[in-house]
Amino acid sequence: MKRTTRPGAEAVAVKGRWSANRWLLARRFTQLSILGLFMLGPWFGIWLVKGNLNASLTLDILPLTDPYVLLQSLLAGHRPEMVAITGALIVTAFYLLVGGRVYCAWVCPVNIVTDTAHWLRERLGITGAARLSSTARYWILAASLLLALFSGALVWEFVNPVSMLHRGLIFGMGLAWLLVLAVFLLDFLVSRRAWCGHLCPVGAFYSLLGVRSLLRVRADQREQCDDCMDCFLVCPEPKVIRPALKGADKGIGPVITSANCTNCGRCIDVCAKDVFRFGSRFGNRADKPGQTTHQSLGVEALR
């Protein structure tokens, strides 16, 4: 069937423009706010947060360190000071709880670049795609750790577009624009969701943190699904939805359990039937589809 409307159009019609873009807007707001906190210093001299996503110091008291870059440093043979380790533990604990790839959808500045590239790609109807394996990122992750181990240097940091973009915005870009442009073109012309969905080892690392995370998207109302496919079309990691949405017959529960779900909430936005919502990983039983667990009720109450 040839689609005539863009994904989410029905949701806009049913729920209104605001409700149908709620999580997308919340995400953009969060991404820009975090970036804004880092920019307050260099732009306005208000130093609430110093540093960048690799390591930062908030209000001169809270250290935060990217556990991925610190792990590379450890493998490179350096024993870091306690401050860096504490920072990495705080960050790790946070993402263990809310899902590692929340970093990708809610924090990482490259997400705005790749989402824009994806949006443009869809608008222009570009379909041809280079075949990339979505496991390539884990290979690259392993390679980046091995390179650190054997070279004694943070090799990935020489090319990492994620830290380059964030650091560049705060400390000055130099030629890092070229790398960002490369990522944009990759997602725009070469392959759908190529960077974040297939290649980025930062996302791969954070996905490993999120294997057992509490906060999950749940397809609790999956019997309402009318197969409009909108959620698959907007999802940056389409593979993660299918088991939870369509697995009722196979005894699979309604919780999206894949570590690669970024908790972006876009599927919640675009579903006109309100199949999805944020909840916890508990109560993932297939036998009573649509049952509301007390945990998910709790999250519902917080909204």
Binding site: V69, A76, G77, A153
Partner: peptide, 27 residues
């Protein structure tokens, strides 16, 4: 060792009162 120990955060640059230090940019 420095190239394996420095995680490129720029906190030293920020705390230098004389703006002596800068973070190397790509290029």
């Amino acid at each position: 060792h420095f190239i394996g120990a420095c995680i490129r955060c720029g906190l030293c640059v920020r705390d230098c009162p004389y703006d002596t230090l800068s973070l190397a940019r790509l290029g």
